[in-house]
């Protein structure tokens, strides 16, 4: 019994002394932030993150090579702690964003040829600026859907549809779209201009049935100074109250309302008053 104690005392002291000596003698300066991050990780050194141990993972996070939630074992509490250390705090002022598509072309836009090439919007853009008469619209080939690392984009009827639940607003699709149609908007924004055509009204409508024709009716209808027509109608999301006034007056239904992740066409108020919707439903211009 005594022997056990003595041996372990000696062993402990010896190893402790050597290690203390070594760590003092061979001390290498490291960033305190890095050490804090490593501290915050579980320290199981299980390797589940794919990095060599917790310090490897910590280093990768510190160098920005890995996201703060890299540790699958620690889960979200660890991620939040590390985010705090890294100074990436969840900004409560900013509303959560989601990606949306600024085109409602699909079959509404006239095609000029039958494109049977590769399903790559980049390539389509390089072949006569795409198969649509409208040079600004969506080709429907799904480069954004392929680029999305979260499978949040799905091609439905030739247009990308963003699943708001899966979308993390990472902005990859915004960069991927050669037509610059993807936009990150506040999640609670309901009213959107679904057109990016900056052509003159006449040219725009002749290439696509649902193009913005720059009639400026929306500008007049808006009580909050939230929509303006430059090259195309643009909503100022900080001012917009989702009152739908602009969508109601838009003659080409270029301004649409999203409800529960789906597009809802707003019937113009004029129709409600007169009771007859024949003219506006058939009217293209």
């Amino acid at each position: 019994m005594l022997e056990t104690l003595i041996i372990f005392l000696i062993l402990g002291l010896l190893l402790g002394a050597i290690l203390t000596f070594a760590s003092v003698k061979f001390h290498v300066e490291t960033d305190p932030k890095l050490e804090e991050i490593i501290e915050a990780l579980p320290g199981a050194n299980c390797g589940a993150c794919g990095y060599p141990g917790c310090s490897g993972c910590g280093k990768a996070i510190f160098e920005g090579k890995a996201p703060v939630n890299s540790c699958p074992v620690g889960g979200s509490p660890t991620a939040i702690a590390i985010a705090g250390i890294m100074g990436i705090e969840a900004n409560s002022d900013q509303k959560p964003l989601v990606a949306r598509v600024k085109c409602n072309g699909a079959d509404n836009a006239k095609a000029i040829y039958e494109y049977s090439g590769a399903k790559s919007c980049l390539l389509a853009k390089n072949s006569f600026s795409g198969m649509k008469l409208c040079d600004f619209g969506c080709f429907g080939l799904g480069t954004c859907a392929v680029s999305c690392p979260f499978d949040a984009i799905e091609m439905v009827n030739g247009l990308p549809k963003v699943n708001a639940k899966k979308c993390t607003a990472c902005g990859i699709c915004v960069k991927a779209c050669p037509q610059f149609l993807m936009e990150l908007i506040p999640q609670d924004q309901k009213v959107l201009v679904n057109c990016n055509n900056t052509d003159k009204g006449k040219n725009a409508i002749s290439s696509c049935k649902v193009a913005c024709i720059k009639c400026k009716k929306c500008e007049k209808a808006c009580n909050f100074d939230a929509i303006h027509v430059g090259g195309v109608a643009v909503i100022d999301y900080t001012k917009c109250t989702n009152c739908r006034a602009c969508a109601e007056v838009c003659p080409t239904h270029a301004i649409l309302v999203y409800e529960k992740n789906n597009i809802v066409k707003v019937v113009a108020k004029v129709e409600e008053k007169s009771g007859c919707s024949g003219c506006s439903a058939n009217c293209e211009r």
């Binding site: 199981a44 050194n45 060599p52 141990g53 310090s55 280093k59």
Partner: peptide, 8 residues
């Protein structure tokens, strides 16, 4: 960098 992982 792999050393800490090896203890366990």
């Amino acid at each position: 960098v792999y050393l800490p992982l090896i203890t366990t």
